[in-house]
């Protein structure tokens, strides 16, 4: 990659705005903190949840979008914990703005440790999705996202929203489906803290949507294909 004499995309933003900005680019501090956080996270997942990962070889080089079913706050942590090297450094979890970016303190944690980007439920503007899509391709990022849009309160996977299609339709960026098993039992929404239950993560072969048109029908089609790829990784499906 050539060097570009170009300021950070978030240059000129006040600190609080920068933490919540979709244009936030990570610097050295964020990389060091993120690395320490991931090391602690991996230790925790191995010791407390005996995390078992299959299909790691399916993870491509960045950019890509890693999607999974969503039942608990452990999900994003687990997915960001299993990434390594360049993919881990470029990974952004797309997190609910109202949950993780409420106060400046929680924004600072979400931004610096988890490297999350806020997505505002029910009021995600078309421009925000366009920014995310542009950065995914240009900055060669990795997005961790849950196309159901919210945690399944009963642990059963819901239908995927078309937003995933908006991000990748017509691009070469692969989508990697994954299925997380055990997160709901370990940390259901009504529990305050997680329980030491076993977690299993199955990572499937990447899907590509270069030929899918950037239309409503195309986005919905992409979402459906993503959903069935994740369902195919469910333990009982095999």
């Amino acid at each position: 990659m050539e060097f570009k004499l170009r300021p950070a995309r978030d240059h000129g933003l006040e600190t609080a705005d920068r933490l919540r900005s979709l244009s936030r680019e990570r610097g050295l501090g964020s990389l060091v903190l993120g690395r320490a956080w991931r090391a602690a996270l991996r230790g925790y997942l191995a010791a407390f949840h005996r995390l078992e990962v299959t299909g790691r070889e399916n993870l491509p080089e960045p950019p890509f979008v890693l999607i999974a079913n969503h039942t608990s706050h452990l999900d994003a942590l687990t997915l960001s914990g299993v990434l390594r090297g360049e993919a881990a450094r470029r990974a952004h979890a797309l997190a609910a703005g109202d949950t993780f970016f409420g106060s400046t303190l929680s924004s600072a944690f979400a931004a610096y440790a988890v490297n999350a980007l806020p997505v505002w439920r029910k009021r995600t503007k078309a421009g925000e999705l366009a920014t995310l899509r542009e950065r995914l391709v240009e900055d060669r990022l990795v997005y961790i996202l849950f196309p159901e849009g919210t945690r399944a309160r009963d642990g059963r996977m819901a239908a995927f929203q078309p937003g995933i299609g908006v991000l990748v339709a017509g691009t070469e960026v692969p989508v990697v489906p994954a299925f997380l098993d055990g997160c709901h039992a370990a940390w259901p929404p009504e529990r305050r803290y997680p329980a030491p239950r076993k977690l299993r993560l199955a990572i499937g072969a990447p899907l590509r949507f270069a030929d899918v048109p950037a239309t409503r029908a195309g986005w919905e089609d992409a979402a459906r294909r993503c959903e069935s790829a994740v369902r195919a990784l469910m333990p009982h499906a095999s």
Binding site: F3, K4, L5, R6, P7, A8, H11, E25, G27, L28, G29, L31
Partner: peptide, 16 residues
């Protein structure tokens, strides 16, 4: 920090 974010040097974390 300001210099590397303005010039893009922050995209080379090893040098920074």
């Amino acid at each position: 920090r300001e210099f590397d974010r303005a010039t893009g040097l922050f995209r080379e974390p090893l040098v920074a």
